[in-house]
Simulated scan of single mutants.
Amino acid sequence: MQRMGSILGIKPEAIAEYKRLHAAVWPEVLDKIADCNIKNYSIFLREPENLLFAYFEYHGTDFAADSAKMAADPKTQEWWAINMPLQVPLATVKEGDWWATTEEVFHVD
């Protein structure tokens, strides 16, 4: 199992809509997350900085392949098309990335 964290900005005027959408994530999107070996997925909001922090646990063996499978899913693409305009990538994100990855520096069970 691999723990993963990412950060992304959100437009202040989009916070209420983002919360509304995530209060009722489409079942097909939740199924695809599980199908791609992702468990214990949470997104946290930090205001007033308007940052989203995502945490999940990856239980597969090929994260790149599972990420590609998720990205190829039409329902997930539709979900992202609705949510991405609400978000703001960090200025330092790598080209081609949306969420900025983070380094785990501490963990205790």
Rank of each mutant, 00 (worst) to 15 (best):
A71I: 02
A24T: 12
R3P: 01
P85G: 07
A68D: 13
E13P: 00
E57H: 07
Y18W: 05
E13L: 06
L86A: 05
A16Q: 11
I43C: 06
K19P: 01
F106D: 08
T102Q: 12
E47R: 13
E47M: 10
M1T: 13
E47D: 08
F56G: 01
A14G: 03
A23E: 14
E57A: 14
E103K: 14
L45H: 11
M4Q: 13
P48M: 11
L52P: 00
S6W: 08
T92A: 14
A68M: 10
K11T: 07
E28T: 08
D66A: 04
Y41L: 06
V105M: 11
E13A: 13
A71F: 02
Y58A: 07
F56A: 02
G96I: 04
C36H: 01
D35C: 07
K69E: 14
V25F: 03
K94I: 06
A68C: 05
V108D: 07
P27S: 14
G9F: 04
R46H: 14
R20Q: 15
D109V: 10
P27L: 07
A16R: 08
L86Q: 06
E95G: 12
G5F: 07
F56Q: 07
E95C: 03
V25H: 00
K39A: 15
D97P: 01
A64T: 12
F53M: 15
F106R: 10
G60T: 05
E103P: 00
T61S: 12
Y41I: 09
V88M: 09
V88L: 11
P89Y: 04
W26M: 05
F56T: 00
V105K: 15
A81S: 15
W26L: 07
A23Q: 14
D109H: 10
R46I: 10
D66T: 03
E49R: 08
K19V: 14
R3E: 12
T102W: 02
E49Q: 13
S67W: 04
K39R: 15
N83F: 00
A24V: 04
P74A: 10
V108M: 08
I38F: 02
I43H: 02
T101W: 03
W80H: 01
V88N: 10
A14R: 03
A23T: 11
D109T: 12
A54H: 04
C36A: 15
D62W: 04
E49P: 00
M1F: 04
P27K: 14
L30T: 15
K75D: 12
M84G: 03
V108S: 10
P12G: 08
L45Y: 09
F106H: 14
H22C: 13
S6H: 11
H59T: 15
N40A: 10
D62P: 02
R20W: 04
D66H: 05
